[in-house]
Structures are given as structure tokens and as C-alpha cells.
Design a protein around this nucleic acid. Structure first.
Lengths: 135, 135
DNA sequence: ACATCTGTTATATAATATATATAACAGATT
DNA sequence: AATCTGTTATATATATTATATAACAGATGT
């Protein structure tokens, strides 16, 4: 399982799960058509409540990342289901305004921030390799 | 006042205030030695409770952005008080990993993300001009 | 047909976070 | 001495987060 929880984190469990699924999709550890465990199964695996998983899945569903089927479980959507749209860009910009402002305050410039992002994307692609036998 | 609140937002009021102060520092609308209104004054201005402002100020204090004096009110710190340090970099990277992963999922590449950040920083500097007679 | 596993929905409960309302204290200013 | 500071302490209300049970209906496998 690619999921690890920090129960002491201020970030809610359902948000941690949502974030890690998105990161797994970005790394292509999860691809179109891949299945996630059922809410009950993942709840058992992680030792949390069914509703916590259900909330995370419903957010991901609402965001377009996955589709939910009875019995089968949860399926990662094809990428065209979660293409960037107007509302997403607005939200992204708002988030980056806050983060970038603090970074600028603390003396970083756009090149340094860009380097961090380039490195993150590089890492996403590195993790892509050598992981064929998972899930 | 450079502060506007969205009471319907899911973002807590004290977090909105914290973020807007950081953005104001980034825009240099607030500079070293500038004063912020007292907790009571800003609470009255914004129509919220004293403790909500106090919480925002204490977070900003803890983050190094300002110092609190009795009577005088609240003073923006010199920039060396909130230089980027190890812990901040770790936190910044964690935040950007999540945001960048989602952006990559939605089809953006590092150039496009970088452009958004460059534009944000450009806007921060634009707002710097023509605002001499504020506060 | 039947049992079983799905997601889903509904309640209830508890703990924590957020926000407000008052009050009081101690330091600093005027 | 009066006033304005930040600070601290309670109390209260609401919302969020997380858990605990239970039940329902659709789909699957036997």
C-alpha cells in the first residue's frame, strides 16, 4: 500500500488520503483503470473508520480523479476526466499566491521556487520507473 | 485597510488574516517597522472577536513576521527575522508536492506552473508602486 | 435462490477546532 | 490617575473531524 498516515498531523486523515492518492496518480503509481481497495478494506488496512475513507473517496470522486462502482470498488479515471479547468486554475492561483508570498518574504526568488517544483516533478517521474509489480 | 474577509470561506478567519498580512509584506505594503492596528482595533474594524485577531497575530509572531509591544501595538519585523530556514524549506516542499502533483495530474507542466508563479511575483512587485500614501 | 461483498445512507457520540462574549490583569503612555 | 496595550482566563456555541453501529440496495459468485 502506498498510503501512510500521520495521526499526529494537523492535516485531517481524509485529506492526507486524498493528497496521497493524487500524488500516486501524478507518479503514475496509479493509472487509468487501476482499482483502489474498497472503503471497508482500506479502512481495515489503515485502522481507521469506514466513513473517513468514504469521505476521502467522495472528494476524489467530486474532483474527477476516480469513479466508484459497487462491488468492483473504486477505479481511477482516464486523465481527461480531471483536466485543468477554469475553476481549478483560479483555485491553484489562490493557493500559490499565499505560498509564493511567504516564500518571497523569506527571501526566495522565482528561480529558486521553480527549482523546487522542477525537482518535485523530476521525483514524480523517477518514482515512475521500477515499480511495475505493485498493487 | 488592506484586509478583506470572506466569512463564507472554509478558510478560518484567523488564517485569512495571517495570509493577507504575509501577502502584504510580500507586496511591501507592509515593511519593517510598520505598525498594525491593535488586536482590539482590528477586531473592531473587521467586526470580529478580539481573540480571532490575537490568534492570527500570535501565529505571525511565532513565524517571525512581527513583534508585539504593549501599548504601541504590533510591529513588522526586519526581514532577517523571517529568513527561510531548514524547517521552512521542508514545509514548503511538502506543500508544493501536493499542489504540484495535482497540477501534473491535470495536465500542467513545470513551465506552466512556473509561469503562474512568475506572474504572481510580478503582481507582487506591481502593487508595490503607487501605494506610498497608505496606512 | 442465497450468501456475500459492494457503496451508500442514516444516527449517535466524542473530541477537537473555530469563533464569540466577558472579564480581569499587568505593563506602558499620556 | 486614567487610558490603552497585549495577555490570560472562563464560558458558550457552532462546526469539523473521527468513530461506532446499523441498515439498505445493487452486484457478484456459488
Amino acid at each position: 500500500m502506498f498510503l501512510t498516515l500521520d495521526l499526529n498531523s494537523e492535516i485531517p486523515i481524509y485529506t492526507q488520503i486524498r493528497n496521497q492518492v493524487v500524488m500516486a496518480i501524478a507518479k503514475q503509481e496509479l493509472k487509468e483503470g487501476d482499482f483502489l481497495p474498497s472503503v471497508r478494506q482500506m479502512a481495515a488496512d489503515l485502522g481507521v473508520n469506514l466513513h473517513t475513507i468514504n469521505k476521502a473517496y467522495n472528494i476524489l470522486k467530486q474532483e474527477g480523479f476516480l469513479t466508484v462502482h459497487r462491488r468492483k470498488g473504486v477505479v481511477i479515471n482516464p486523465t481527461d476526466k480531471y483536466k485543468a479547468e477554469k475553476e481549478y486554475y483560479k483555485n491553484l492561483k489562490e493557493q500559490l499566491e499565499i505560498i509564493t508570498s511567504e516564500a518571497v518574504c523569506r527571501g526566495l526568488n522565482s528561480e529558486e521556487i521553480n527549482k523546487i517544483i522542477v525537482d518535485i516533478i523530476k521525483d514524480l517521474n523517477n518514482n515512475e520507473r521500477g515499480r511495475e509489480n505493485e498493487c
